[in-house]
Computed example of a mutant assay.
Amino acid sequence: MQLPINPPVEPMLAKSVPQLPSADGMTYEPKWDGFRCIVFRDGDEVELASRGGKTMTRYFPEVVAQVKRQFPTRCAIDGELILIRRDGPDGAPRLDFELLSQRIHPAASRVRMLAETTPADFVAFDVLALDDESLVDLEYPARRARLAAALKDTVAPVHLTPVTTDPETARRWFEIFEGAGLDGVIAKPADLPYTPGKRLMFKVKHARTADVVVAGFRWHKSGPVVGSLLLGLYDEAGTLHHVGVCASFTAARRAELLDELAPYRSDVVDHPWVGGDETSGQRIPGAPSRWTGTKNLEWVPLRPELVAEVGYDAMEGDRFRHTAQFVRWRPDRQPRSCGYAQLDRPIRFDVDHVLAGDPTATA
């Protein structure tokens, strides 16, 4: 592969800010919830490079085929691999990160099967090179114009991300696009060159809190201190589901937590997760996955009497999408009051409208 810029290239990144920034020439676009991917094409050679520089080419043969069919013959284009679920319970097409994660599988036969049954789309939002020309030193508006011209004839499953320079439209996007499974809004300054690995863009993501039951913990790899807290929520039938973990603590705080949890480690009887069976619909901790591999997932049950307030950004089905952040203990709350009903559910929105730049999305 002989392009003006070749893999591995670390993508340009964004730093989190609490509010949407506003400045002359600022451009806004949706923050897609998928796998960041820089596509390199040199004729019949195609490389799908992940954010960490690892290849994803073998896992997405259907995307490689679309690159050969629709991309310029020689290019390096930054974007996101996404997976759209069209058979969800509410009937609206939306992004599904969990299904996308299942696409990373070692067996070639399963890769082929998943490429047919759960194909991925690609959303382009920046360009590093076209033909023999490197574009990384151009300011973002110029790169966007070159990208739009290069992909003007593309059709699904290849998409050009919508953009706006109107802050009010961007705020509206932030409010409604979450219902389609998107992750927030990205803001790009007008004078922004493409700088690999640097956090020169801005991202605004949803931030929320919930009261949860702390029903167990895992040990930290460094020794006999708390590694993570196991969090639960009750459904309407009174079943406690494992919904995620809190894990970001200082070494001193991990030792303190062990003392705080000690009273709840004794006299644990009929724990709702011990002996549970996920085939019944209950989500329980301890199940290995292709991400955890041989990682020790053993956990220590606690009497489900502790309530904590945690911060989270979004839900993935009935669990927290990312690791939650511990805020404080809530001794004033009853564990049985910690249910799904307290969660802020986004307005339902159709991801196809986002990709098509539907005018109703900016109303």
Rank of each mutant, 00 (worst) to 15 (best):
M1D: 12
I5M: 10
I5H: 07
P7Q: 05
V9T: 02
L13K: 14
A23F: 13
T27Q: 03
E29M: 05
K31G: 04
R36G: 04
I38Y: 00
D44S: 11
V46N: 03
V46R: 12
G53A: 09
T57Q: 10
Y59D: 02
P61E: 00
A65F: 00
Q70N: 06
R85K: 12
L95W: 04
L99Y: 04
Q102I: 02
Q102V: 06
S109M: 01
V111D: 00
D121L: 08
F125T: 11
D126G: 15
V127L: 06
L135C: 02
E139G: 08
Y140C: 11
Y140Q: 09
R143N: 08
L160P: 02
T165D: 01
T165M: 03
A180N: 07
I186H: 08
A190P: 05
V214L: 01
R218W: 15
L230D: 00
L240D: 05
L240W: 07
H241S: 09
A247I: 08
R253H: 14
R254N: 09
E260I: 11
L261G: 09
P272C: 04
G276R: 02
G276C: 12
E278H: 14
G286M: 13
S289E: 12
G293N: 08
N296H: 07
P301T: 13
V307P: 02
A308T: 08
V310Y: 11
R330F: 13
Y340I: 03
R345E: 12
V351S: 02
H353L: 09
D358T: 01
P359V: 10
